[in-house]
Design a binder for these strands. Structure first.
Lengths: 201, 201
DNA sequence: CCTACTATGTTGCTCATGACAACATTTGCC
DNA sequence: GGCAAATGTTGTCATGAGCAACATAGTAGG
């Protein structure tokens, strides 16, 4: 019987979600290294072993966070593109700005997302990453159709754009470049990209 | 008195270096997460508390590894550039290829190097990173002098090149892109960079 | 030489965490 | 209603980080 005052039913209801939420906050505040399952359990008010019912081990939770991160990134990008002009340059700019913002506002999460190395079972993460990458590739394809871009494998070109943005964000997140230079760098990168990948006149 | 057979003098001689070496191997084999000071101590044959005399805590060791990593990267880049042609495009290509190789052959180390977030005292790492960045900027400056590049802050342009390469390596290291595409991507990225940053004709 | 003094290692703790097992309570389905 | 699967709980173990007190080895003056 639940205690009327503390209101703690035996079953939490949706511990999994609560864990992911708490984990994301912890990630943001303290980084992945200091994220402890037991902390989350305490914070939520369940026993220290409860998380195990939803995530076999710590890494599984981190993987789930990364996976969700890519989904969110995809959503954010899609939303930005939906609101953007039809002009190819404008669309690339919009995507780039949004990506950069997402990447710097969720630095620790980004790290998690791209740090799948050394785990065999990162298949889900890689799959989740395909959505935003395909999205970029689609934008590229549009650009090629508009004649703004040289022909060629759109995926390859998209990957390079993706990589450039990720690299810039990574340099900012690592304090190698002051944050106030972010926008300028992204802008220059996009300009160069547009110039470098346009058809030979 | 040292035991003649086990040959273990009370003082190791240069534990610090031994620790860094062992740490780098462990990093390469198991990743930063599973790097344990006690493991290193065991492997080297000293007591579990010995590392503390050289690194106040685990993070300090990781920081030292990252710092050394940037030094090595700088050396590798310098060496590649020293052996490269005077031609600007050739120099950029050489640097890019070497960077990409270093980054993918030392994936876990690279991660450490760029993951200084969330630590206040990462000053040394950031400082160490300046060497290779300056090097890139110098190459850019040369290119501008040769007229192969548009004028403008060489640092900014160098950062973008740097970021692009880092991003590509990161995507490969994270298994988001198959390793055999690395060379092609780097090449394309360099071509686009050279086209995108050259002076408006 | 011999005596501090400092650097470097060692032993022995404490504490936290992840992982696991055995048990308890719900929930839902037949 | 009753049984099986979910979901939580308590208890335990192994491991590692960090700290303190102690031991040993170089080293620098006197």
């Amino acid at each position: 019987m639940p205690d009327a005052t503390t209101e703690r039913p035996y079953h939490h209801g949706n511990l999994r979600t609560a864990l992911l939420d708490a984990a994301e906050r912890s990630l943001r505040e303290h980084g992945a290294d200091r994220l402890a399952l037991r902390d989350l359990a305490r914070e939520i008010g369940v026993s220290h072993a409860a998380p195990r019912r939803h995530f076999p081990d710590r890494q599984a939770l981190l993987d789930a966070l990364a996976e969700a991160g890519f989904a969110r990134l995809d959503a954010v990008l899609r939303s930005a593109l939906a609101g953007a002009d039809d002009d190819f340059a404008a669309r690339v700019r919009a995507a780039a700005v949004v990506y950069a913002r997402f990447a710097t506002e969720n630095a620790a999460l980004l790290e998690l997302m791209y740090t799948s190395k050394h785990r065999a079972g990162a298949t889900r993460i890689v799959a989740a990453a395909e959505a935003p990458m395909r999205l970029l590739a689609e934008v590229i394809t549009e650009g090629q159709a508009q004649g703004a871009l040289e022909p060629g494998d759109p995926e390859r070109i998209g990957i390079i754009l993706f990589a450039t943005l990720q690299g810039i964000a990574s340099l900012v997140n690592g304090n190698f470049v002051p944050p106030d230079r972010l926008d300028g760098l992204v802008e220059t990168a996009v300009e160069q990209f547009l110039r470098g990948a346009r058809p030979a006149s």
